[in-house]
Design a protein around this nucleic acid. Structure first.
Lengths: 328, 328
DNA sequence: CTGAAAGCGCTAACAT
DNA sequence: ATGTTAGCGCTTTCAG
């Protein structure tokens, strides 16, 4: 910028004015400055700008895994809102590891992102308190914040799972299995609770062997499905706790002869063609809602932190309407 | 940092040393400084650090659409490599719009990202020349750079499509349709070329009505598929040029009575269960390879820009092995 | 309408 | 082992 000023024969501030489109520059001077910029290939250094202005025009998004088809659309929705506000988006995957989550979040804070959207892996976010106090607005998505009071946007996991299990019950099932993600993940627990409530509502007892929480790795899910179908008190239907579980469950069920009903939490591409009944949540709306809330905070709105729960939708496509098998 | 120094009763540089783990500080002083840091809730401001050091420890990734299941894994792979090198990843979606691509790229350059990975939407990247000269390493992925000499990592679209079409021909098809993305997209053209070459190799004529390039919006693809199946010279097989096209093609074919063979470029989740034969490319490897190349450049390796083409794999699953229908 | 000076928070280079 | 000074490239402030 100094060079540009020298070359155009003007003061530093004038160049700054031109670069930022501020008023108070003669068309003539502006032209000279523009020319100098062109010929020098000058591009404003935003790092310096940030240092001076205090705002980075960037936000951070920490999620579990960008490769998961659930998070792609969420991230994209956040990006669109950020873009509308002139901000860039820094993404990070926690890989469901609380330490890595914290490491990422703090790295983003050190870069002074204006705001943070976090899909928490851990349960204790007190480490964020000083940062939030220091002005980094934060919104939690998909799962609530741990130990701190903050904005949260989630899907109604409990209600969705309850509706899904009730759907299976309405179609005659009495022995229904639940396979979900690790019990330290909030949504997994909420969905299990929804399932249990639906069973209870219908006066049905839940056999412990019908419930399995753990990793969503295909092998683990495969084993869980198989165990529930072949145990002493086999289930006639399965409720899959998220998209990863559903995908494997569908594969396992496809290999078996006796038809088994299935309802999955989260919609999946091509699930329509495979006739998979799902409880759909809208990842993009989740992301958009969170981002809008974040930017409202950045615009100075300072009301109490609030929780929003987005409705889920049951989409019947066949697999959830299969009746219990005759010998079941 | 100034405050920390004051509170600990030491010089500024000593605090800097402690914060950055540099040697030359007595354990005792270090302890005092750490305490001051704690009690003040100090966190180093990386913006200032960047300004001084000239490196941001961040790279930019500009792709088409993070919500597309092809790009999620690619982005995640890039992130992993970046993380291994201590860098953060800034993502941006161009929405296949050359102007938006340029806008994003230049915004990233203004932030002085250390490097850039670009999945080009446009065909002219000369606007990047000054930036590259200024030291921002750049690698293009999935499609070649336009008008400039740069590192490129792609999949073998031509070879993959040729193999896919040859596969259909080997199964007896003579009238094969090709539905691809917009003709301004390099991969679309390459895949079409692969298809044409396979046809030629087999001595088969290609009817113009069998080729359709354009938007991958479901309505467009649906119309294209329908036209090819119901025209005067109907096809018995379809080659789908990418994952978006395949998804819609599968839906349309599922609605029809006469079986039609299908091979799709790009693998898709659950395609195994639907028996969709595909030419698979590995998005994660694409991303990883590009990121590794980028960091090699950042580490000072300065050889000639090079092009890498990753092999594709034909995965037969049934839809590509359907013979031509009797009346076809 | 224009410019000079100060300083954002940090680190490199050089004292002490 | 520790501190001092200068300056990264920009914007803010205030004076011309």
């Amino acid at each position: 910028m100094k060079d540009v000023a020298a070359r155009a024969g003007v003061g530093l501030k004038t160049v700054s004015r031109v670069v930022n489109g501020e008023p108070g520059v003669t068309p003539d001077t502006e032209h000279r400055v523009q020319e100098a910029i062109e010929s020098l290939g000058f591009r404003r250094n935003d790092s310096a700008r940030v240092l001076r202005k205090g705002r980075t025009a960037s936000i951070g998004l920490v999620l579990e895994d960008l490769a998961d088809p659930f998070y792609g659309p969420l991230s994209r929705a956040v990006e669109e809102v950020a873009r509308a506000h002139g901000a860039l988006l820094i993404n990070g995957s926690s890989a469901e590891d609380p330490e890595r989550e914290q490491e990422l979040v703090l790295a983003l804070c050190a870069r002074r992102v204006d705001g943070l959207i976090v899909i928490p892996a851990g349960h204790d976010h007190r480490y964020l308190e000083p940062e939030i106090k220091a002005g980094i607005a934060t919104v939690f998505v998909d799962r609530p914040a741990g130990q701190i009071d903050a904005d949260v946007v989630l899907s109604d996991s409990f209600g969705g799972a309850r509706a899904g299990a009730a759907h299976l019950i309405a179609h005659g099932h009495r022995r229904i299995g639940f396979i979900g993600d690790q019990p330290r993940i909030h949504t997994a627990v909420e969905r299990l609770r929804g399932y249990r409530t639906a069973m209870e509502d219908a006066g049905l007892r839940v056999n412990d062997a019908w419930v399995s929480l753990g990793s969503t790795a295909p092998e683990r899910v495969r084993a869980a499905v198989t165990a529930m179908l072949t145990g002493p008190d086999p289930v006639t239907a399965i409720f899959a706790g998220n998209n990863r579980v559903t995908v494997t469950a569908v594969r396992v069920l496809a290999e078996r002869e006796r038809p088994v009903a299935l309802v999955g939490f989260d919609d999946i591409e091509l699930a329509d063609l495979l006739g998979i009944t799902v409880i759909a949540q809208d990842a993009a709306t989740l992301g958009r809602t969170a981002a809008e809330r974040l930017f409202r905070r950045l615009d100075g709105v300072d009301d109490e932190p609030s929780q929003v729960a987005l409705e889920t939708v049951l989409i019947p496509r066949g697999s959830g309407e299969i009746p219990p098998s005759a010998d079941g």
